[in-house]
């Protein structure tokens, strides 16, 4: 297959970027989108040109590294998929494909299509965990957890932290990401002691990073490779309202 690629090239965070156009030929239909970029890069290197920088690692849809905005959509034209699991057979021979980095103020471009997503880690730092030190846990079966609760918690816990939710959102909101963690932990008995503070602190950090607000368009859930449902956001909303409106039972 043959494609014309319009690729965003940007030297570093400070330099302005622009689109460059490349032709790539002889791409097998069963190649993944990233493998197609590999083919392009091999060609560029041979020509003595700088290859296109893009994030990637596991190439099986779980590490959350890859993140390209392809033809106007996070991770390309298919819903709920990462770029590494997007195959060229989903494009038409001769297509022109526009590739941009994920764009958001908290995701500064590092180079070309690579962006810094450490803002997401800083949100987790504010409470995306249960504070338990190694060695202090009781027997694993000492607290039964309803299967349904564990299953729902799992649905939210599968977030891969790729940032597609932010990229797809018209407001560059990180609500789906943040709420997935809040919802996961709020569903489990182990998550209860810190539940009130967790949601407040994580929301505060989300705002401090400069992510936008959520306007419930649902674009995030359409693009989310981990299929985190929008109910995560509802759960965060509910917890946040509860944590702020009801009196803290243990306040002095």
């Amino acid at each position: 297959m043959r494609f014309t690629l319009r690729v965003w090239r940007q030297k570093d965070a400070k330099s302005p970027g622009q689109f460059e156009t490349y032709e790539v030929d002889g791409v097998p239909a069963d190649a993944s989108f990233l493998e197609m970029l590999d083919i392009l890069n091999e060609k560029l290197i041979k020509e003595g040109k700088e290859p296109v920088a893009f994030d990637h690692d596991c190439r099986e849809g779980i590490c959350g590294s890859c993140g390209l905005f392809i033809n106007g959509r996070a991770h390309g034209p298919l819903p709920n998929i990462t770029t590494c699991r997007l195959y060229m057979r989903h494009f038409k021979d001769g297509d022109t494909i526009t590739i941009e980095p994920f764009r958001a103020r908290p995701f500064p471009v590092i180079k070309d299509l690579v962006v810094d997503r450490s803002a997401l880690d800083r949100i987790i730092q504010k409470g995306g965990y249960i504070s338990v030190n190694t060695g202090s846990a009781p027997d694993a079966n000492s607290i039964p957890i309803a299967k349904a609760a564990a299953d729902r918690a799992f649905d939210y816990a599968t977030c891969i932290g790729c940032g597609a939710c932010v990229a797809a959102c018209k407001n560059a909101s990180a609500m789906l990401f943040t709420s997935a963690k809040v919802a996961h932990l709020a569903l489990l008995p182990q998550g209860q002691p810190e539940r009130r503070e967790r949601v407040k602190r994580m929301v505060a950090q989300m705002d401090a990073e400069g992510f936008g607000h959520c306007s419930n368009t649902g674009a995030c859930a359409v693009e989310c490779p981990a299929k985190i449902p929008l109910s995560a956001i509802a759960r965060l909303q509910r917890d946040f309202i509860w944590a702020n409106l009801t009196p803290d039972p243990y306040a002095r």
């Binding site: 965990y129 249960i130 338990v132 190694t134 060695g135 202090s136 846990a137 009781p138 027997d139 694993a140 079966n141 607290i143 039964p144 957890i145 309803a146 299967k147 564990a150 299953d151 918690a153 799992f154 816990a157 996961h184 932990l185 489990l188 182990q190 998550g191």
Partner: peptide
């Protein structure tokens, strides 16, 4: 044995049976 205990305490959603046990 302790790993499982610790991971459950961390909130890892392991598969469970209907009775709520792992």
């Amino acid at each position: 044995v302790k790993i499982i205990d610790h991971c459950v305490a961390q909130g890892i959603p392991f598969a469970r049976e209907y009775g709520g046990y792992l």
